[in-house]
């Protein structure tokens, strides 16, 4: 069981969350060319090691979180809200 420290709810089982994707993906502008979108949507660095990724606290506060986690050991280094303003608020609460 991976335990994720949700900045809003506290430490919870990962089964409360839904894995999103690689957080380093930069989605292009809506009117960006097809080739940029193709890279963003279909191609992955697929890091073997520490990666930044998104998780959705689906059965909790519904925040999308940026989690720094090892894809080899599942060890988590850091967790923060993806949205910068929410991150500020949750951080000041801690």
């Amino acid at each position: 069981m991976i335990r994720i420290k949700c900045p809003y709810c506290g430490e919870r089982d990962h089964s409360e969350f839904t894995y999103g994707s690689d957080a380093s993906i930069k989605y292009p502008a809506l009117d960006a060319p097809e080739s940029e979108w193709t890279q963003a949507i279909f191609f992955r660095e697929n890091i073997r090691g520490m990666q930044k990724e998104t998780w959705h606290h689906t059965n909790g506060c519904r925040l999308w979180l940026e989690v720094e986690r090892s894809t080899i050991t599942h060890e988590i280094k850091s967790v923060k809200a993806c949205h910068p303003q929410i991150e500020k608020i949750t951080k000041s609460k801690l």
């Binding site: 991976i2 990962h14 839904t18 894995y19 690689d22 697929n46 073997r48 990666q51 990724e53 998780w55 894809t71 080899i72 050991t73 599942h74």
Partner: peptide, 8 residues
């Protein structure tokens, strides 16, 4: 799947 990326 375990629903998250992993090499473990």
């Amino acid at each position: 799947l375990d629903w998250y990326k992993s090499y473990a």
